[in-house]
Simulated scan of single mutants.
Amino acid sequence: MTVSDQDRDILARTLWGEARGESLAGQIAVAWTIRNRVNDGKDKSWWGEGYAGVCQAKYQFSCWNKTDPNFAYLSGAKQIPFRELAQARLAGDQVIDGKVLDPIGGATHYYAIAMKTPPAWAAKAKQTLKLGGHVFFKDVP
């Protein structure tokens, strides 16, 4: 699969929007969630196609919702701090380029521990990892 500069940029911005307070390892874990969706054989109309398509698919990553406070940064209306975006780019590039193994055991979903109520889908899914502020899952019904 060919990965464009736009795919890399959208992935980095998504990592910033979803996991900017995480360590490099935490951002790599979130990036692997996205990669697992890109490579999943499920219906592309739900996941999206390619990295940009998956990141920006409706209902997938809330940071891309126009009402989300992160959206102004992700869309380029406001500037993301250089060091924060650089770390997100590093995490995304390492995952896209296959330089790090999947630490989340094939997970396609995660949620932030800070959520007051876990999403309903988490109750029937298999937890694969808890890292930083996120819990990762696979086999989500």
Rank of each mutant, 00 (worst) to 15 (best):
G48Y: 02
A25Q: 15
D43Y: 13
D40Q: 03
R35C: 11
G21C: 01
W46D: 04
Q56W: 07
S23F: 01
V30Q: 04
A52N: 11
A31D: 10
E18R: 10
W47I: 08
V38L: 02
L24H: 10
I34S: 04
W47H: 10
G50L: 01
G48D: 05
G53C: 13
W32M: 07
W47K: 04
G21L: 09
E18W: 08
K44H: 05
C55G: 07
G53N: 14
D43M: 14
A57L: 10
Q56R: 14
G50K: 03
Q27M: 15
D40V: 10
A52S: 15
A52F: 07
E18Y: 06
Y51W: 14
E22Y: 05
N36H: 05
G50P: 02
N39G: 07
I28N: 07
R20D: 12
G26C: 13
G50F: 02
Q56A: 13
A19E: 11
V38M: 01
I34V: 14
R37D: 14
L24I: 14
K58T: 09
G53A: 08
Q56L: 11
G50V: 02
G26V: 10
V54Y: 01
R37F: 05
G21N: 08
A31N: 09
E18P: 00
W32Y: 12
E49A: 08
S45Y: 00
R35V: 11
K44I: 08
N39I: 03
D40M: 09
G53K: 12
R37M: 15
A57G: 11
K42F: 07
D40G: 14
R35S: 12
R37L: 15
Y51N: 09
W47D: 05
L24M: 12
D40I: 03
I28L: 14
R37W: 06
V54T: 12
A29S: 01
N36W: 05
S45M: 01
L24K: 14
N39H: 03
A19S: 15
T33A: 12
R35W: 08
W46A: 03
A52E: 14
S45G: 01
G26T: 13
T33W: 00
R35A: 15
E22R: 03
Q27F: 09
G50R: 04
G21I: 06
A19T: 13
D40P: 09
S23C: 08
G48C: 03
W47Y: 13
G48Q: 00
V38Q: 04
I28W: 11
G50H: 05
Q27I: 09
Y51I: 11
E49T: 09
G48E: 06
V38K: 00
L24T: 11
G41C: 02
Y51M: 04
E22V: 08
R37H: 08
R20A: 06
E49L: 07
A52I: 05
W47S: 15
G21Q: 10
V30M: 07
C55T: 13
D43P: 04
V30I: 15
I28E: 13
S23Q: 04
Q56P: 06
V38I: 02
A19N: 10
Q27C: 10
R35D: 15
A57F: 05
D43A: 14
